[in-house]
Design a protein around this nucleic acid. Structure first.
Lengths: 232, 232
DNA sequence: GGCCATGTTTGCGCCGGGTCAAAGAGCGCC
DNA sequence: GGCGCTCTTTGACCCGGCGCAAACATGGCC
């Protein structure tokens, strides 16, 4: 589709090492689609018709358990590919992706994937690295859930959020999109009550600063020490 | 290296769709190496010099936390690739792989990977699917650790073990390699004490049968119901 | 065949954090 | 500009499962 400029995807890792003409060619097959805040880009168990690159906004990717609990898998930030279910051999999406703010993504039909990787071998190699680093992240979470207490898990989660979606402001680093205590609970395997108690305590120590759907880290270094288990 | 017959890797998914001549060509670059029980195939944080396919035996892959706790990432069974750190863009291994019984693996130098995928594009695609399915597994574990109680996590872990490494015997399905209560604890984020108590209780109900480094599932269906949360 | 190392069982006490309940606070919408 | 929904805070209670401790079983090895 016309109108998608190459500069939009200049720094996207999945396109690393591909020639400009190749990138243009890939972009021609994509559509740019808007997803208003609150809408789902795709839903768990739905047929994996498309794969995506986020251009603008933020997505919350979560799994729903049979008894209705949600577990946040990750947040997608601009420049990331997502919804690559087909590429990893799945017919359906393993989770739901929901826009937490108005978002825009490039959309390719999944059916085009085999042809695209055949034409651009670098694509499979780059995607392999992307999926690989997500595997690392997932294993890190497994280790944390298995061995750390709640407070340290929350600290780790916030530090990771700050790194990937932090905006530097005067007084510290602020998470760049609306995020609830419930979200943090669903990232760390605990309850919103416990998260609230922990954040309140940290706020009293000047470690973080809260607000409705807002978290700002005032002292990243101290939070890091806490995450690594140095006695409070 | 001579002496590695194609029939050894007939059903290995990573080679799916490759022509027999291509497979022969890949095998020529590999060495077959023995790893006696208890030895490490590679170690966490060590430079990722090689990648592997397990031909015979079983490996226990685990991560070591800074405070010395181990978390079992998975068990490798014959036919699986492992140690593909380089392919997913890491210079070092993220975990340790240890032979739980005498094992044999095919070994390629990591340095050969870029050339191999360039020559055999199907390799990257297949590896992507393999890594993708591991990502699924890891996310499943995150969901379980986040939302389920210990007993159900242990049930899920045993069912997965039985599926991937179960040997049918007269009275049920037996895990096909020596596995300790401690191992199960490290797979499920609990302690060996709790695992022991759970297994003892299940044994009293005729669900499983234990022994030193031995677990046999007598009633997979009942165990499945328990794993899915049906009231005991 | 007996010793020793490694793995397993079991009891007891305690506490991190989940559950239940209810009262505030901020924001969007009409 | 006020009403109501959503998000957050805080309290009180309680229990699953972890930590500690000690006895017991099993198989490998000399």
């Amino acid at each position: 589709m016309a109108g998608v400029d190459r500069s939009l995807v200049a720094g996207v890792p999945v396109f690393a090492g591909l020639a400009p003409e190749q990138i243009d060619q890939l972009l021609q097959e994509a559509q740019s689609v808007r997803y208003p805040k609150g809408t789902n880009v795709f839903q768990q168990d739905e047929e994996a018709h498309s794969f995506f690159i986020l251009l603008h906004g933020h997505l919350r990717v979560f799994k729903l358990t049979p008894d209705g609990q949600q577990v946040v898998v990750r947040f997608v930030t601009p420049g990331e590919v997502f919804g690559v279910a087909m590429a990893i051999g799945r017919m359906t999406y393993p989770a739901t992706a929901q826009a937490v703010v108005d978002s825009i993504a490039l959309v390719w039909p999944s059916a085009a994937w085999p042809r695209l990787v055949a034409t651009h071998p670098g694509l499979a190699v780059n995607t392999l690295q992307t999926v690989g680093s997500r595997l690392q992240d997932a294993h890190t979470r497994v280790v944390e859930l298995s061995t750390e207490q709640v407070e340290r898990r929350v600290a780790h989660a916030l530090l990771r959020l700050a790194q990937r979606a932090g905006r530097k402001v005067e007084a510290g680093v602020e998470i760049d999109f609306p995020i609830t205590r419930q979200d943090v609970a669903e990232m760390t395997g605990t309850t919103l009550h416990t998260v609230s108690r922990i954040l309140t305590a940290w706020e009293a120590q000047g470690l973080v600063e809260g607000g409705r759907q807002r978290i700002m880290i005032r002292d990243p270094h101290k939070l890091f020490l806490l995450a690594e288990g140095s006695p409070s």
